[in-house]
Amino acid sequence: MEKWENNKAWFLVLPVFLIVAFSAIIPLMTVVNYSVQDIFGPGNAVFVGTEWFEEVLRDTRLHDALGRQFLFSGLVLLIEIPLGILVALAMPKRGWGVSASLITLALPLLIPWNVIGTIWIIFTRPDIGLFGVAVNGLDLLSVPFDHTARPIYAWITLMAMEVWHWTPLVALLCYAGLRAIPEAYYQAAKIDGASALAVFRYIQLPKMRGVLTIAVLLRFMDSFLIYAEPFALTGGGPGNTTTFLSIYLVKIAVGQFDLGPAAAFSLIYFLIVLLLSFIFYQVLLNVGKGEKR
């Protein structure tokens, strides 16, 4: 659709700009302020330039946390996006099943994040949790399953929780995209004798690009910033093996109250998310544009 060119449209956007800017700009500037000063107390701060940034960039524990964060977010996207698409493809298209599926999918999304972590603690307990008992009942593991015992188990538990919690969001969004495809497309494909795979590749996938952009970006941002769930479930352990960036950040900011380094860390963290989101956004916006008919 061609758009009208009209700069007066700014008046419609202005209220949104103001309400978001109220909460966004002043806190951001304050954090920038912290990041270049050494603060001893109220009204007692010294300008230190880029010292905190250099200190943070040299911090090896931060590098480890960043690596873990990339692994975690990468796994999240690799599992949740395809699984969400599959669920959306399998969902019924009409009848009572639609409402039932939508409601079932939405339930995990409505539980507060700290509660999610707490439920999964008991759900995966090897003595009284369903998941823990079931996994140990299979008797496949040399060391009994307990997410506090071994890093790999902690990771499996976290991934299971994350996939359980957020795949429904991807599925809901993809379902919306699929329902928007006019029936005529499918009829045309049927006449051409297209296989199910071809229908998916050339009709459903391109038509889902918009919703997939939202899904990938939301899942990337939220998994990269994840805090409440792993904090409640593993507290970053065993050792530091599930200490993600935000958990490490809170350790510096609240635990040690090092406001300067924490602020510098936050800004670097923010820029990483921003840069990667921008790349995802541009790629998803432009991919496959050439083959559009």
Binding site: M221, L245, S246, L249, A253, V254, L274
Partner: peptide, 13 residues
Amino acid sequence: TNRMAPAAVFLLP
């Protein structure tokens, strides 16, 4: 971009 900032340090401001 307003979804992308890590909340922890922003809470004090």
